[in-house]
Amino acid sequence: MKYFALFSLPVDFNIDLELLNQAYLQLQKAVHPDKYAHKSSAEQLLAVQKSAQINDALHILKHPLKRAEYMLSERGIDIRAEQQTLQDPMFLMQQMELREELEDIKEANDPDAAISAFDKQIKKIDLDYHTQLKTLIAQTDIEQLHRTADVVRKLKFIYKLREELERVEDSLFDD
């Protein structure tokens, strides 16, 4: 779990974002180009690479889903580039219905109310899966890891739904 180690943080999904940010700023300060202005070009290059690596690590740890995917991949389950499909009819039926509902919002009599009701609905589902994720990801046996991966996959659909909701909001706002 080198990303956690980079920021001197414990390997824990429930990360302290404040501490992460502080550690990030400190690390970036140490490799700031100003400090390397009079160093050799090889050292400058190294500092730039180090800085990029710190940025990558922050980007992954900051985002709950990316953090979960990273922790899973470090434990041997890499779902980041997988092409396989999800086949959980109950879950997909719910997703399909939510997508249909979202589609109808544009034609709703009171789109603002429809959006906030929809938003509330997704937030509830989102919270439910996040709670599951928090408990599951602390487990280390392989069966639980696979269940964790399944929850992460489902959360990806919820995130997509949130993005789509934002798109609908933007399109209504533009008119």
């Binding site: 092409q83 879950f91 997909l92 997508r99 990806k156």
Partner: peptide, 13 residues
């Protein structure tokens, strides 16, 4: 047949 792609969040029926 219901399927979904976690990679992009697409759903298909």
């Amino acid at each position: 047949g219901m399927v979904g792609a976690p990679a992009c969040g697409d759903v298909m029926k």
